[in-house]
Amino acid sequence: MALSLLARNIPKLRGFAALPRCTFRIQKAQNFTQLVVSKNTNSLSLANKCKIQFVNVGQQAKRNMSGDHGKIWTIEKIISFLLLGLVPATFLYPNNILDNAFAVACVLHFHWGLEACVIDYARPIVVGPILSKIAIALLYVVSATTLGALIYFNQTQIGIGCALRDFWSITGTAADNQKSAK
């Protein structure tokens, strides 16, 4: 529609050439943007009548589903990178330090991971504003208690690494009994 409008009125539209200059400001600015027509754009004689336009670009922020978590992002990635080494290391060389490091890194990682899932699926519009808050609160409880439980397990029992190795040593055959008889 806009195109046909342009085609029909090319002679009169020269003044509009200055408009992109105005719109550009909106994109550049962060929050409340003052759209002021520059003095030297005489061709915009009509547009000069437009006084000042406030465009609240900040309101757009709410469109993001998961909100702003730019600061945590870097930590998330560092933890993921650490897990890349911690997962095999804990399995290959189980010891108390690795067990606990794995517990902390893993719980942090899955907490943020599951938080993203909860935010995506247990949305206020889907489950209601109260349930969506409860879901997040519940996740905090689960993550915190899991971290506590894992550290307790590492301190009082065989620990995560040995538990995994133990489980992996199962063959399901008679060989198991010979090994465990020792």
Binding site: C106, V142, T146, A149, L150, Y152
Partner: peptide
């Protein structure tokens, strides 16, 4: 799995 491991351990 990790949550189950933690909870069952305690």
């Amino acid at each position: 799995y990790v949550i189950a491991l933690g909870y069952s351990a305690v």
